[in-house]
Simulated assay, not measured.
Amino acid sequence: MTRADELRANLEQVRERIEKACQAAGRARDEVTLVAITKTFPVSDVRALADLGVTDVGENREQELKEKAPDCPDLNWHFVGQLQSKKSRSVVRYASVVHSVDRLSLVGALSKAASAEQKSVRCLIQVSLAAFGSADAATGASRGGVAPADVPELAAAIAAADGLELGGVMAVAPLGAEPEKAFAGLHDVASRLRSEHPGADWISAGMTGDLEAAIKHGATHVRLGRALLGTRSPLG
């Protein structure tokens, strides 16, 4: 089997899982966007996925984003990893969406970068779901993000910033948590955000192991790497 055949088979399985999850949740399939996370994989895989109809691709590291995005400029590039403020300009140059906004200083850096690049960047607030996880998760296995109580302040800053658009929320289920409980909590956070900012209707949640639970609780974007591309190589 060629690499292209492997990716095609994986993509078919992923699309079937998303379709079934949407059916089970009583949602339309077009409500959920697949974001292919290509961390550590070559740009040839990105191009192969694009040839198969994948339009949205995400990277966790600024270095990989700036190496791959120029070769595939027609794709919608998402940045999903933790972001240092000093790398905002580089990320904004290539990505149209940043999923991991978690502090006010980053809002300022992204706004400055977006204005310099003369573009609009959609920003998602990364929410910590530790409070909705297991006891073990809450004591040290949080996957990053701001506490739900801090979302309104960060949302207001993004909404007021030049060059930025408040898109919604993103989260990763805490290690050891029940995804159902975690994503139900995220759904509540997202609902409160939309009451103040109706256009902030994205929920980026769900990965290879828990996409069904995320879709059940309103995810609009699922971020899949392993299910599409296989086991990642160790980072250098």
Rank of each mutant, 00 (worst) to 15 (best):
N60H: 01
A177I: 06
L106H: 00
V151A: 07
Q82D: 05
D51F: 00
A149G: 01
K119Q: 11
R122K: 14
W77G: 08
A48Y: 04
L124P: 04
V151W: 05
S111E: 08
G108Q: 04
D136M: 13
H78C: 04
E64D: 07
D74L: 08
A116C: 03
G176C: 11
L110R: 02
L83T: 07
S96K: 15
P70W: 09
L104M: 10
L106M: 04
P152A: 08
E165D: 10
V92I: 10
F79S: 07
R61V: 01
L175K: 11
D162Q: 14
A149H: 05
A182L: 13
S96Q: 14
A177M: 08
V80E: 09
R103G: 03
A131F: 05
P179L: 11
Y94P: 03
S134L: 10
L106Q: 00
G176A: 12
E165M: 13
G108K: 04
Q84R: 12
H78F: 00
E165S: 14
G133I: 12
A160T: 04
I158H: 12
K68I: 14
Q126S: 06
E117V: 02
V91H: 13
V172H: 06
A69D: 03
V97H: 11
S128A: 11
D136W: 01
V54L: 07
K86R: 15
L52G: 12
V54I: 09
Q118P: 02
T55F: 00
A138I: 03
C123T: 06
A159N: 14
D74V: 11
K87C: 00
Q118T: 13
G176T: 13
L83A: 00
D102C: 04
R103N: 05
A141Y: 09
H78T: 06
D56V: 02
P179Y: 13
G108M: 07
T55C: 05
R89G: 00
A155L: 09
V101N: 06
V169P: 03
L104W: 02
V54R: 01
L49E: 09
A114R: 02
G58N: 10
S142H: 15
R103D: 06
D56W: 13
L164T: 07
A155G: 09
D150E: 15
C72R: 00
E178W: 03
E64Q: 12
A171D: 02
R47V: 08
C123V: 10
M170P: 06
H99V: 02
K112A: 15
E153D: 12
Q126G: 07
K181V: 06
W77Q: 12
E64M: 09
D51S: 13
G167W: 13
A50I: 03
A160P: 07
L104E: 14
S142D: 15
S105C: 02
S105E: 07
G140R: 05
S90Q: 14
E180M: 11
A157Q: 10
S142T: 10
V98W: 04
L166E: 03
A69E: 03
L129Y: 15
S115N: 04
S100I: 02
A149T: 08
Q118K: 15
A137C: 08
G53F: 09
A69M: 11
A50S: 14
W77D: 12
